[in-house]
Amino acid sequence: MNEQDKASSTTPAPEPGAHRWPLWEVFVRSNRGLSHVHAGSLHAPDASMALRNARDLYTRRNEGVSIWVVPADAIAASDPDAKGAFFESPQGKDYRHATYYTKSEGVKHL
């Protein structure tokens, strides 16, 4: 038995699920990227530890120059089952594209 085991055997095991750190979503902007891109998630006790954990987990191979962390429960997400109505196909709605419209005569610089 090494010291680690001895140390843990003298302390009562915490109740499972008693102390879970909150979940954070991590967004990383890469060297050449213009915007932050979702990289994954992690557990951390607070925002500044979440940033440090994100640095260790998601930027250790030189992936990023900037990190955002957001509490996962602060993100309002669309319902993945709402595909039909929510993400209705824009087919047949050509008027949403600029090319639908004909150029008026005499308009320059378009």
């Binding site: 680690q4 843990s8 750190w21 992690l42 557990h43 951390a44 440090r52 954990n53 260790d56 987990l57």
Partner: peptide
């Protein structure tokens, strides 16, 4: 053996 996976990595 760390308290959390994240601390394991750190």
């Amino acid at each position: 053996r760390a308290p959390e996976l994240e601390e394991d990595v750190a």
